[in-house]
Design a protein around this nucleic acid. Structure first.
Length: 602
DNA sequence: TTGGTACCGC
């Protein structure tokens, strides 16, 4: 056969197929093996690009061929995909185009550089914005599919070809990178967006800032904000909330206040999320009164409390053991027409667990299920933690088994709860074994797992190993947080090594991680153990200057220290102060005070 | 585009 005969027959076959499809639909093809066996890639192209065949029918045929109905039929090749896309574009069937692009992206024999795809598009046969739109959609498909290299390739092509790049598509990519913890790439891509003159708004900037904050790079995040401000991009309440969150998590009092004054300067009003964060902040400082005050203030200012705000308030009441208030708030939330979510239930379940009422926890789980919420992994972990905290390891392992049957893999939260539960029972060897098992199973230990291990070694008196782990964790790029430092500081203090403890305090401050009530209580205890109650009192006063509220543990430590040295006047003064603060002294405080009266004053 | 589970103190 000559070339012209060949193409003539191709054309003939194509026109028969078009006619058949238009007359009797796809069924006609299934009954005509002759047509099917001749439907090669060229015929497919002719059919799909035929103006006589409407786009919807092109799609039907394409899907039919994709399913590869007989040994004679061809699977659509790249050209067929691209042709179909251009037909679908005529009909503005964007969702269908995304599907077809996904076929290309997920098929090893079709996936190729975008340049190749574009070269298959018929010259002049398409609308002016077609290539641009196609690239944009392909970029999103790669971003959604976490195919980062491919996505970057499309971006690069668009930039080079002078095609307009939509910020919203870049946002899809930035979010995907953030979700995969690819922050270097995320940050780098954002810089490329700037260089490529993509029209950037506060949206994409905030995503990058949040990603950097979540990784602990708060300074870099702030620098980025400054840099973008010079380009005329102003932070909004979301941006500020992101930074507030970062500073709250680091206990950076000064940092939070700086952001709050920036908010004021920019005349931005607090949002419900801002209030949630401030409530979290005060709650973590033990200032539950302030938390309730913020809740009132918010409503006075006419800002509607949403389910997050209620959940936070419920959670803090749970954490201080005020379950009555927690349940009242839960009712209030429902009365307001808000719908409790799994987080809200999680807070309540955690609360009853902490109160040691595991039966109540199971009742809440049932209630939650009856309202259509599945027990998710967080709730399972909360229950496991509840049992572990009570020392009921077997019950915890039972929940773990149920969780695994439901298809959840035991994660680092659960491993950690089990290890710390065993640690509280002084079953250190078992505790370590669980954490080591976790690592053997391929889970990468995070800052909390490391902290728990450091704590175990500290409790065993093995400070060398604790310190070695601390160094190892930093080497692995896991940033220590307040709790990590507190753990090691407590270890040193307990062993009378106050010098090292103070050194660590300086180190953490230099890292931008601020000491909290735990840090001070340990240091105070350490000074007392070393017989330096005057130093302890100094630290105690420093807390007040820093706005840190002393709690039961702090008072107990300093009163015991003073009593031991016979400084009973000072001890009694602090005892009064303690009671005024609404903290109930326990027997040890009374005993030490009585003892102080018998100790000779120096 | 922001806000929930686990780890530390007498």
């Amino acid at each position: 056969m000559t070339k012209s005969q060949n193409s003539t027959s191709h054309l003939e076959i194509a026109s028969i197929i078009v006619k058949d499809l238009n007359n009797s639909g796809i069924k006609s093809l299934t009954k005509t093996p002759f047509l099917l066996s001749n439907l090669d890639s060229h015929v497919a192209y002719l059919v799909l690009s035929s103006p006589d065949l409407p786009p919807q029918s092109c799609l039907t045929l394409f899907n039919f061929l994709r399913q590869n109905p007989s040994p004679f039929s061809h699977k659509p090749d790249l050209k067929a995909h691209v042709t179909l896309i251009s037909r679908l574009y005529e009909a503005r069937k964007f969702a269908e185009i995304v599907n077809v692009l996904n076929y290309i992206a997920n098929d090893d024999s079709l996936r190729c550089p975008v340049l190749h795809i574009v070269s298959l598009i018929e010259e002049g046969a398409h609308e002016p914005k077609f290539v641009e739109k196609l690239c944009d959609m392909l970029f999103r498909v790669y971003a959604d599919g976490r195919m980062f290299k491919e996505a970057t390739g499309v971006f690069h092509y668009m930039e080079k070809s002078g095609l307009m790049i939509d910020e919203r598509s870049c946002i899809v990519f930035l979010l995907a990178l953030k979700r995969c913890d690819e922050m270097d790439m995320c940050f780098g891509f954002f810089q490329r967006m700037v260089e490529a003159n993509v029209e950037i708004t506060v949206y994409s900037m905030t995503i990058v800032i949040d990603g950097l904050c979540k990784r602990g790079e708060v300074q870099r995040a702030k620098d980025l904000m400054e840099q973008m401000l010079n380009r005329g991009i102003k932070p909004n309440i979301y941006t500020y909330n992101t930074l507030i969150n970062a500073y709250v998590k680091r206990n950076d009092f000064v940092g939070v206040n700086k952001i709050l004054s920036s908010l004021k300067n920019d005349q931005l009003a607090y949002s419900a999320a801002t209030y949630t964060l401030l409530m979290e902040w005060n709650g973590s400082l033990g200032k539950i009164g302030e938390v309730e005050k913020l809740f009132d203030e918010m409503r006075e200012r006419g800002i509607e409390a949403d389910v997050h705000v209620y959940t936070s308030l419920i959670s803090w009441n749970c954490r201080i053991g005020n379950m009555k208030r927690a349940f009242a708030l839960f009712d209030e939330l429902t009365d307001k027409g808000l719908v409790a979510n799994s987080h809200t239930y999680g807070a309540l379940i955690d609360g009853v667990c902490k109160a040691g009422q595991m039966d109540a926890a199971e009742v809440l789980v049932k209630d939650m299920q009856s309202r259509g919420f599945d027990v998710n992994q967080v709730i399972f972990n909360t229950l496991i933690n509840g049992f572990c905290a009570k020392g009921m390891i077997n019950e915890a392992l039972n929940v773990k088994a149920i969780m695994e049957r439901k298809g959840y893999e035991t994660d680092m939260f659960a491993y950690n709860s089990i290890a710390s539960g065993l640690c509280k029972l002084k079953r250190y060897e078992e505790a370590k074994r669980w954490l080591f098992t976790m690592m053997e199973r391929g889970l990468t230990p995070n800052v909390v797992n490391f902290t728990t291990l450091i704590n175990i070694f500290s409790k065993e008196g093995n400070l060398e190993e604790a310190n070695r782990l601390f160094k190892e964790m930093e080497k692995k790029g896991v940033r220590p947080n307040t709790v990590t430092y507190n753990t090691l500081i407590a270890g040193y203090c307990k062993n009378g090594k106050t010098k090292e403890a103070h050194k660590l305090r300086g180190e953490m401050e230099a890292m931008g991680i601020m000491p909290d009530v735990y840090t001070f209580t340990s240091l105070i205890h350490g000074e007392c153990v070393s017989g330096k109650s005057d130093e302890a009192v100094k630290l105690f006063n420093e807390m007040k200057q820093k706005g840190l509220k002393q709690n039961q543990f702090t008072y107990t430590a300093v009163i015991l220290g003073l009593s031991k040295e016979g400084k009973s006047d000072e001890a009694f003064r602090l005892y009064d102060e303690m009671k005024e603060a609404g903290i109930t002294p326990d027997d040890r405080v009374y005993n030490s005070l009585v003892g102080s009266l018998h100790t000779a004053r120096s």
